[in-house]
Amino acid sequence: MIIPLEHILMFSTLLFAIGVYGTLVRRNLIGILISIELILNAVNVNLVAFSRTTALSPDTGQIFTFFVIALAAAAAAVGLAIVLALYRTSRTIFTD
């Protein structure tokens, strides 16, 4: 790990904040889904960083990230299915 842990943590908090901002502010449902992906990625970066440097054993961190990625893909799939169903009934996917 060439760069100190704090820098990565700052990076992931910033990424997390952008994701939160996106979910709060976006009008478009798919925009919100995209921001949720950002949040999940920020979490993954944190997990891998911890598993790489601190007491968290390497495999738990990475396995956890595996499952987060898998579940994020699942969430995106169901979310977009719902968006499509919504679009078909109400002809628009704007939240307001």
């Binding site: 939160v20 901002y21 709060l24 502010v25 976006r26 009008r27 478009n28 925009g31 939240t95 307001d96």
Partner: peptide
């Protein structure tokens, strides 16, 4: 326009 009214509060 992609973001709704509470964009300031979100920020």
């Amino acid at each position: 326009a992609q973001n709704n009214k509470q964009s300031l509060f979100g920020a």
